[in-house]
Amino acid sequence: MDEQRLIYDAQKGDLEAFNRLVLAYQDVIYTHAFRMLGDESAADDAAQETFIAAYKAICTFRGGSFRAWLFRIATNQCYDELRRRQRRPTTPLEPFTADDEGVESPKWMGDDSNSPEDALEQEALKEALQKCLNGLPREFRSVVLLIDVQGLDYAEASQALGVPIGTIKSRLARARLRMQHCLQAYWELLPEKFRLKDEGS
């Protein structure tokens, strides 16, 4: 796929070309939205809104990293959703059954692991990570997600978040440190291989 060509065609109004870009990026955008919001349906809405907004603004894309540009739109969509939640806090992170009991291993946190043991380990890890991510301030969360989860470099993250690289560096270091401290609290949830050496010392 020639991304530049697709972008060029999309800028000319070719919806088909844009949809090919959507297919290429929908998983990473959905993952980013889910990690930012910790909620499947909100992430679904945010991802859809991201692509609609991106199509409407595609003419303003002036080169550089398309992925970073898309992440910027997605991050702003997530910020909007988080702001809405702050105004009207309602939805709990975990889904509830009809008896108002939390689902221990929700389907929405599941993945394609092979063995049941691996699945459990992964499940625990995901839950712990998501809880720690949810505890981060949103500016820290977006940096750590873009760099450590999505694999952007500092320059792309800087473009995606509209902040200088120096800010990216300091936010990332602080976010990682907070994640590290938070994960200590979920010690029992973490599989053996993930446990930090001097935990408990």
Binding site: N19, V22, Q26, F34, D44, F51, D111, R176, M179, K197
Partner: peptide
């Protein structure tokens, strides 16, 4: 070492699959 482990932990998370297509 601790930061390395935290970073590795975060990076080990697989990308999720979108529940549907977002075609416009």
């Amino acid at each position: 070492e601790q930061l390395w482990q935290t970073r590795w932990l975060l990076r080990s998370q697989a990308a999720l699959r979108a529940p549907r297509n977002y075609l416009l």
